[in-house]
Design a protein around this nucleic acid. Structure first.
Length: 584
DNA sequence: GCCGTTTTCGGCCCGACTGTTTTCAGTCG
C-alpha cells in the first residue's frame, strides 16, 4: 500500500471520528497525520521498520500504529472497526455543501440515510424539514447541493478557475471605492487544482454595499449562496464557488493573509502569535489579557503589508506558493527559505500549441506574447496527425507551419521560434511521423495520448521504445496528469527516468514551476540522475497564450546548450527548492 | 490524538454566516 493510500485512510479515520462525535482535536490529529504523511519523502517501509516514523512531528503512537499495520499487512484493525459504524456512501454525503459530520451522522442514525440517493429521496418527499434542527430551507439547500455535486467537479484546473476569477475580479477591482484588491486562496498559492475562488478587497465603509451588489449581480453568477455585510458567496456558472470579503484598508494585509491560507499555514502562524501573547485573526493582532483568557484589547502591531505580519511573528516573508505548513515556517524562522523560480527567470518554453492544432492563438500571436514577456525563445509543439481530436497536423501542414516559422524567425531580433512537434506515441511504441518527417523538426516532444488502459509493464515498454527514437528530445507529461483529478496512467516512472538518463532525454513534468509539490520526488530523482526536466503545469489544457503565461522550460544540459538557451538560474533555484524540501 | 528547551497535563486558531432557533449549533474556510 502506498503513501497516498495510507494518507487517505488516515483522513478517513479522522472523518469517521468526526461522524462519531469524538473530540474534534482527536479527529484533527488524524487529518493532520495524513497531511504530514503525504509530505514525507523517505521510503515508508524503511521508516516503519527502523521506528523512525514515530519521530516525525504529528505522527504519534496511534497514527504510527495504523501506518505500520497498513504498510506491513495492508489492513488496519483500528480503521476497519471504525468503518463498521458507517456505510461507505456516507462520505459522498459529506461532499454536499452544508452537510457536515453532525448532520450526516444525525440523518444516518435517525433515518438510516446512507447515500446521496437516499438523501435526495427523503428531501424530495419532504421528510427532512420535520426533523429537529432541519427546516424547509435546509431541505431546499440539500437538493441544490446534490445538483451541484452531480453537475460539477469539486476541483477545477487552475486556468479554468483563473479565467472565471479574472472576469468577476476585473469588474470589482474597477469600482471607484476599492482601495486594494487581490485574488487570494489556492489561486494565489498557485495550486494545480482550485476548490474555490477567494477575493479580498479593502474599501471605505460607504462603498461596501455597492461593491457587494456589484459582485452578486455579476453576469457570471449563477446562484447566491450567502450574502452578509462584509462577505458574500456565489456559485459561478462554470460551477466554481466564489467568495468576496470586504474589509477596512488597515485590515487588508491580515485579511489577505488569512484568506490566502493554507488553513494549516494559518493555524501555525496563529500559534506563533500566541507565543507572543497575541491572537491573530483576519483583522489584525490583539493581545490576550492576562487573567481574563480569551478577552481581547486593542491591536498591538500595525502592519501595512503581509511582510509586516511575517516580521511581527519573527519570520522572513513566505511566498504564497510555499504556504502549506510543510516546513516553510521553520525555514522562515532560520532564514532558510528557498528562492523560488519567478517569471523573470523564464527564458522560454517548449511545449506550446497554436491554432494549427488545439491551441487558441496564431504563431505570430504566440511569438508576440512570448516577446512581450521578455522571453528569448518559444518552442512550438503542435499535435501530430493521429491526434484527430486535437486537429493534429498532417505532413503537408507541418511543411506549411515550418515555412511560416522560418518567415517569422527572419524578422525577429534576439528571439527565436523553434519548430517542434508533440508527436503521439502509438500503442506499439512507434512514433506518429516517419523518420524523414521527424528529422525536419528542431525537436520532438513524444507523448502518450491514447490507450491509457495498458498495464504498467506494457505502458513502460511502450514509452521506453519511443524514448529510444533518436529524434525524440522530450518525453511529454511523464506525470501524465492529463485530466483533472486523474492521477494519470500507470507507468514505472523510475524506470523511465533511468532510461532517459541513459539516452540523454528531457522529461516534462506537469506542475507549476513554483509548485512542484505534487511531483517533486520524481523531479528530484530525475535531477539526481542528471536528467533534464521541462516543467509545465498541465500541457493538455495549456493551449493558446496561456502557454506563455504558465509554461516554463528548464534546461539542465544537452541539446539546449547547443542552441544557447540554457537556463542555469532557474535550475539553481529548482535545486535549492528540492534541497529545502529534502531537509523537511 | 499529539505535543512539550518554562510543560507529561492542559491546551489545541478563529470568525462569518445560515437556519434554526429564542441564544446557538453547525458548517465553512
Amino acid at each position: 500500500m502506498d503513501k497516498a493510500q495510507i494518507a487517505d485512510i488516515l483522513d478517513e479515520v479522522g472523518t469517521l471520528l468526526e461522524l462519531k462525535g469524538e473530540n474534534p482535536f482527536k479527529s484533527r490529529a488524524f487529518h493532520n497525520a495524513a497531511r504530514v504523511l503525504a509530505g514525507v519523502t523517505e521510503d515508508l517501509k524503511t521508516l516503519v521498520e527502523n521506528g523512525e516514523i514515530r519521530k516525525i512531528k504529528g505522527i504519534g503512537e496511534s497514527t504510527a500504529k495504523i501506518i505500520s499495520d497498513l504498510v506491513t499487512t495492508g489492513k488496519s484493525p483500528d480503521h476497519e472497526s471504525l468503518r463498521k459504524f458507517f456505510p461507505a456512501g456516507i462520505f459522498d454525503m459529506m461532499k454536499i455543501q452544508g452537510m457536515g459530520p453532525k448532520k450526516v451522522a444525525f440523518l444516518y442514525k435517525k433515518m438510516k440515510i446512507s447515500s446521496i440517493e437516499d438523501l435526495e429521496k427523503a428531501a424530495k418527499a419532504g421528510k427532512l424539514e420535520k426533523l429537529e434542527g432541519f427546516g424547509k430551507k435546509t431541505e431546499e439547500n440539500i437538493l441544490l447541493g446534490i445538483e451541484q455535486v452531480r453537475k460539477h467537479s469539486s476541483k477545477f484546473h487552475i486556468n479554468v478557475a483563473e479565467t472565471a476569477a479574472q472576469s468577476i475580479f476585473e469588474v470589482i477591482k474597477s469600482h471607484k471605492g476599492i482601495i486594494r484588491a487581490e485574488l487570494a486562496g489556492s489561486l494565489r498559492r498557485r495550486k494545480e487544482t482550485i476548490g474555490d475562488i477567494d477575493i479580498v478587497v479593502s474599501a471605505k465603509k460607504n462603498d461596501v454595499k455597492e461593491i457587494m451588489k456589484l459582485f452578486t449581480s455579476h453576469k457570471s453568477v449563477e446562484r447566491i449562496t450567502g450574502e452578509g455585510e462584509t462577505k458574500a458567496s456565489v456559485v459561478l456558472n462554470v460551477g466554481i464557488n466564489c467568495d468576496l470579503r470586504v474589509v477596512d484598508d488597515k485590515e487588508f494585509p491580515f485579511a489577505l493573509n488569512y484568506f490566502t491560507g493554507s488553513k494549516d499555514h494559518n493555524v501555525h502562524i496563529r500559534s506563533l502569535a500566541r507565543e507572543n501573547g497575541w491572537t491573530l485573526n483576519e483583522y489584525g493582532f490583539a493581545v490576550i489579557n492576562a487573567g481574563e483568557k480569551g478577552r481581547k484589547s486593542k491591536k498591538v502591531v500595525l502592519c501595512k503589508t503581509e511582510e509586516d505580519i511575517y516580521r511581527a511573528v519573527g519570520l522572513d516573508y513566505v511566498e504564497p506558493e510555499l504556504r502549506e505548513d510543510l516546513g516553510e515556517i521553520e525555514a522562515a524562522q532560520s532564514g532558510k527559505l528557498p528562492k523560488l523560480v519567478t517569471y523573470d527567470d523564464i527564458r522560454g518554453t517548449f511545449h506550446c500549441h497554436t491554432n494549427y492544432s488545439d491551441g487558441q492563438n496564431t504563431l505570430s500571436e504566440m511569438a508576440a506574447g512570448a516577446q512581450k514577456l521578455g522571453w528569448e525563445y518559444l518552442g512550438i509543439a503542435d499535435h501530430s496527425k493521429v491526434a484527430a481530436y486535437a486537429n493534429g497536423l498532417s505532413e503537408e501542414r507541418v511543411k506549411k507551419q515550418h515555412k511560416e516559422i522560418d518567415t517569422l524567425n527572419a524578422k525577429f531580433k534576439n528571439f527565436r521560434l523553434f519548430n517542434g512537434s508533440e508527436v503521439d506515441i502509438l500503442t506499439n511504441g512507434d512514433l506518429d511521423f516517419s523518420d524523414k518527417v521527424l528529422s525536419s523538426f528542431d525537436y520532438i516532444v513524444a507523448s502518450v495520448h491514447s490507450n491509457f488502459k495498458l498495464n504498467e509493464a506494457d505502458m513502460t515498454k511502450r514509452i521506453k521504445k519511443a524514448l529510444k527514437n533518436k529524434h525524440v528530445t522530450i518525453l511529454g507529461h511523464l506525470t501524465g496528469r492529463l485530466l483533472l483529478e486523474r492521477d494519470g496512467y500507470p507507468l514505472n516512472q523510475t524506470e523511465i527516468i533511468n532510461a532517459a538518463a541513459d539516452l540523454g532525454k528531457i522529461i516534462e513534468i506537469n506542475a507549476h514551476p513554483m509548485r512542484l509539490d505534487l511531483d517533486w520526488q520524481i523531479v528530484k530523482y530525475a535531477i539526481s540522475k542528471g536528467v533534464m526536466i521541462a516543467i509545465n503545469p498541465d500541457s493538455h489544457v495549456v493551449t493558446g497564450l496561456t502557454d506563455v503565461q504558465y509554461g516554463v522550460g528548464i534546461a539542465r544540459k544537452g541539446w539546449c546548450e547547443k542552441k544557447d538557451i540554457l537556463n542555469t538560474r532557474s535550475v539553481k533555484q529548482v535545486e535549492d527548492y528540492f534541497k529545502f524540501r529534502e531537509t523537511k
